[in-house]
């Protein structure tokens, strides 16, 4: 049986928790189908078989936090036909971008006995700050359905439909009564990028923004709503400064409340 040449897939990791690439292994129902359609050419977490590039599709997890990684991402870009950044680290710098608000050596001193050995950059930055990125999948972590959707779209030449509207649309479709309106629970849903399926409100908690800012986030208006619900300035700083602290609209809004 002549085997047609399958497109190659590579997965690379930068500073991250591994969760986004693990999402691929969590696609239990689709994993073997994926393996049948693509050649997994570089996916260390899954296989010790490593093929050299160029790769047809490269998924990049994690943010750039070291000088070495800032070099490595360029190498990866060079051998990747299509490069997709997956997850909050790769698209916004991730939780480790919390360092961006302060002096990284202060953080290092808290954690490490010998901080002089730490080789790290002052800021944690998304992949797109370093190389051209063909597509971004948001989320901390990405939703595995979107990952499978991405592969399906890519294999078939379809434009991947990822709504950049608010979480509220998903929440309302799901039929969850708004936690902010019905319970007074502060929620970042109205300024947060859809994609999670409005998970947190379905568990009666406010969205904490793990998919980052939506397409036209009115963070100032939402901050005013939060304030009316009793949130303080520090609450707002912390709310906008979590897993997408490095995303510009969230960073700006957090700074507004830091100054007050």
């Amino acid at each position: 049986m002549g085997e047609r040449k399958k497109p190659t897939l590579a997965v690379f990791k930068f500073a991250s928790c591994d969760g986004c690439q693990l999402s691929l292994l969590d696609c239990e129902d689709e994993l073997l189908a994926v393996a049948a359609e693509v050649e997994i050419a570089n996916f260390l977490e899954a296989s010790r078989a490593v093929a050299k590039g160029p790769y047809d599709l490269t998924l990049v997890e994690g943010s750039i936090t070291t000088p070495h990684d800032a070099e490595r991402i360029h190498q990866i870009r060079r051998v990747s036909k299509t490069l997709v950044a997956i997850g909050a680290c790769a698209t916004a710098g991730g939780v480790q971008a919390l360092r961006n608000t302060g002096d990284v050596s202060d953080f290092a001193k808290i954690v490490y006995a010998s901080p002089q050995y730490i080789e790290t950059l002052g800021k944690s930055t998304p992949i797109v700050d370093h190389v051209f990125v063909d597509f971004e999948l948001r989320g901390c972590p990405v939703r595995k359905e979107q990952l499978v959707g991405l592969l399906g779209a890519w294999l078939n030449g379809r434009a991947l439909e990822v709504s950049s509207a608010s979480v509220c649309l998903e929440c309302k479709r799901r039929g969850t009564p708004c936690v902010m309106v019905a319970a007074g629970t502060p929620c970042l849903g109205p300024v947060t990028h859809a994609g999670c399926g409005a998970l947190c409100p379905s568990f009666r908690r406010g969205c904490y923004g793990c998919f980052g800012p939506m397409e036209s986030p009115n963070t100032a208006s939402l901050a005013a709503v939060w304030t009316s619900l009793g949130a303080t300035g520090p609450d707002l700083v912390r709310a906008f400064r979590s897993f997408n602290a490095g995303a510009e609209p969230f960073r700006r809004e957090s700074e507004v409340h830091e100054q007050r």
């Binding site: 439909e161 509207a165 608010s166 309302k172 109205p190 300024v191 036209s216 208006s221």
Partner: peptide, 23 residues
Amino acid sequence: AGRCLACGNCTMACPTCFCTTVE
């Protein structure tokens, strides 16, 4: 627009809003 979150909640809650998209 200074207050509007453009979140779309009004349209989702509205019983007559009928707009849809397809995927």
